[in-house]
Amino acid sequence: MGILRALFLGIYLIAGIVQASELSVAIGVQDPSQLAMSGNVIPPNMPGSELIAFNDDLAREICRRINARCTVSFVPFSAVLPGVEDRRFDLGFGNLLRTPEREKRVAFSAPIWRSSSRLLGTPAAAEAFATKLGHPVSVDTLRDARVAALEGSQQLAFLNAIASQRGLAVSSRTTAQEVIEALRNNSVDFGLLSVQSAYALLNRDTTRQIEFIGSAVADRGLGGTVHIALPLQNDTLRRSVDQAIAAIRGDGSFQRIARRHFPLGLD
């Protein structure tokens, strides 16, 4: 009996070692200063820390469910997809919308939440453009303005697509915080960001210089389901992650993580 017990224990340990894989996780940051930090040391009162902490918690929970040891790296949003595409990262978090173009580059997990986009700007800019255009400013009515968006984002792709038609001067920024800064120093008239990213940054802004302008938009590629990016042709990992997401949703862990960082349900 002792020999058999030892044999089973050995098999179990070997199986555990084999199964426990190393995964590299990329999380898009909100502020350039966060690039050098790790999840444990990002101060909770930093701009955008909620979204990063949420992604960090979610990534660690998924890693725990799939029995993987994960190493988390904070990278600019624009570096998430290329990093996963080049297989430098196994999992990419960053409010990533699923689009046909992106599906050619990376695989996507099951949805983790839903997102929309909204214009940001100062009340003065909103009023000035409303007067100039003759009606309130929104994504649909915006024209002849300087607009910034996150580099590599769907918002930037959308603005670029309508720029010539609407007379827009489109520019990109590496992080969402840089878009906010550009609005503050009047480098741009408006910014187009995902609502969650903007909320995470503006939530702690007591100056209230920047506010949402117009209605949110979820169509035309500016909203929809948000996913985790994974390398193509790694169906085993994708299936494991999907199962973990289903389990996390099923037992209420997802809702607890979301409530820990946001005052509303994300899905």
Partner: peptide
């Protein structure tokens, strides 16, 4: 005013959720 602004900000966030937009 801060408390009012906080609630307004949250309203804008929730009103932007795709579940409401669709």
């Amino acid at each position: 005013p801060e408390g009012r602004q906080q609630s307004l900000f949250l309203i804008m966030l929730v009103a932007s959720h795709p579940s409401i937009l669709e």
